[in-house]
Design a protein around this nucleic acid. Sequence first.
DNA 1: AATGAATGAGGCTTCATTCAT
DNA 2: AATGAATGAAGCCTCATTCAT
Lengths: 189, 189, 189, 189
Amino acid sequence: MEAIARLAGIAKGTIYLYFRSKEEILVALIEDRFARLRTLIRNKLLLTSDSSQPPFPSASDQAPAFDLDKKIEVRESIRRIIDAHFTFYREHQEFIAILYGQLGKIARNMEAPAKCSAEEITQLITGVLTKGVACGVLRPVDPRTLTLALQGMIHAVAFDWAVGQNNLPPDEAAESVFQLFWTGAVRVP
Amino acid sequence: MEAIARLAGIAKGTIYLYFRSKEEILVALIEDRFARLRTLIRNKLLLTSDSSQPPFPSASDQAPAFDLDKKIEVRESIRRIIDAHFTFYREHQEFIAILYGQLGKIARNMEAPAKCSAEEITQLITGVLTKGVACGVLRPVDPRTLTLALQGMIHAVAFDWAVGQNNLPPDEAAESVFQLFWTGAVRVP
Amino acid sequence: MEAIARLAGIAKGTIYLYFRSKEEILVALIEDRFARLRTLIRNKLLLTSDSSQPPFPSASDQAPAFDLDKKIEVRESIRRIIDAHFTFYREHQEFIAILYGQLGKIARNMEAPAKCSAEEITQLITGVLTKGVACGVLRPVDPRTLTLALQGMIHAVAFDWAVGQNNLPPDEAAESVFQLFWTGAVRVP
Amino acid sequence: MEAIARLAGIAKGTIYLYFRSKEEILVALIEDRFARLRTLIRNKLLLTSDSSQPPFPSASDQAPAFDLDKKIEVRESIRRIIDAHFTFYREHQEFIAILYGQLGKIARNMEAPAKCSAEEITQLITGVLTKGVACGVLRPVDPRTLTLALQGMIHAVAFDWAVGQNNLPPDEAAESVFQLFWTGAVRVP
DNA sequence: AATGAATGAGGCTTCATTCAT
DNA sequence: AATGAATGAAGCCTCATTCAT
């Protein structure tokens, strides 16, 4: 709390005018950061729709053509999701560090909001992947598992990269993750 | 320490006859559990070699046949690695919980041994995947990234499943992870 | 710490707002008390110079006369030093008790400042005695040994008296010490 | 206790077959060492009588001659006392260190025996000095104060020398102490 | 008699939280 | 609204002592 107050340029006691406890700060931090990640993903996805659908509006007349559009859309969405995560990890390394450092202090009453925030991200991604499965672009795998696998891959690679173990350029790492996941999940006719 | 002593059915001071500090306990725990996981993986991999190669020793007489053997071997190795992890996660949920709970307390002098233990697992897997890439079974992707992605997928899915969020039967989850990773990483001719 | 806090009428944790550790308290106590003793001695010595030299400024006309002045000055200085110590012992019995009680806990990093403080007193006295030897008032004995002997005498007598073993009035004890040391150290023509 | 047992080449528990508590060990140690010092002093004093009186037995026929003998006897006794102390300090530095290190742990019930042992030494010396005063060799000073002063001088100089602060050769230090005390205490006709 | 593993009271220190100003 | 000195529960660790073998 001392450090938080110092970094915030206020006195220790002042913190308690805005937060009831240290736990609450952590919850607020988690909620804020996860909300940012969610917004980041959502914005990138919207851009995807706005910018990549128009380029392929023709849609012509057949199912296969429609399929191609869908495929591109899903593929781009996944790419954007991955990019958003890598962007987030790059800009919020401190948050990841704090999160891991304080995970042990997440008490019962914090679990709910924290999990909820994380779940929102998961839901957002799951939505995209579910659509991908539904429209036949992705193989018929349980979408939640698909999401978890994607998140796990991203996290592991991004974390390793953030920790500095891996020297692979971030873009290349992101590309590898994308290729791996896309190739693994896409349904080949 | 209080809790550890109580759970161990001994007095607090007794712990210090076997460990010099709380840190040392955590390091010992990490090393022990990671060693078990490593042994588990290694044993399964050995079984793979012993039991699955013999069934296909004859191959026939051509390079493609050799490739098929290799492909099967790598595929089975990956499957075993995943199985080993799921087995481990099922049997050591408490360890995962403790690890996450105490990650924040990993001090400087603990990092080295802890990372070292984890790195051993990573190396073991990387060895398998490197061979897979080298012999042309897997796509030419940076093996470490491949390993991290695999570990990340496994961890995310297994953790979600261990936490009880996901109701998918473990075998099915393992199979999904395998299919996803294998399809994503295998080189198609 | 418990006892210190209780005697100070504060909570245990409050102590750590003013001292970083128990050791630091002991060091601070030692430094403070030794500084007081040093100031006490110095003040008395200054008074000696101011008040006793003027009374004998005339110095008449011969070397012996000068010697007499010197002799009186040195003698008075020694007397003042002894008086200062007895005054200090009387007013700081608790310090002596604490010092002896905690001597065993003086760790490596405390030795330096503690010895330093004590050495300052020793130096101060040695300065006076060295001058006494130099100007021929005292016998040519190693001044440090002279100082140690004087301090030892004072301490032993004052301690015995403080502990209540000895019923001799303090003034008389101080006088005895003075006579003993002076007679023993003065150079007789 | 661990260290004591190790140095004694026995197990920790065995100590309690011979001592009821750690305190008791300290008391026993103090009593033993002080007894040795006492014996050392007593033996040297006896030698003094045996070896230095005979050399001056002739005395002659007058009181002054008798005085001279007495004077020599007292002087030699004092010298022997000092020598005994320096010998003791040289051979028992560890005891001095332990004594100071553990002084703080001397509880109420230890004070009595410890003080008693120390008092015996003081009494022994006081006996010699009392005789010295009684027969007119020493100035009429309170013998206990005389003893304390002598002990204090010895201790301070010997301690400083044992700690290694002072580089004066022990014999010279002993001689200085003797000269200082003797000159200070002897009665000049 | 001897052992040494086990004990647990007590010691020092940290830090989230409170409250008088 | 803001402060920061004060709090005290809780944490880690030590060590004199005990007791089953």
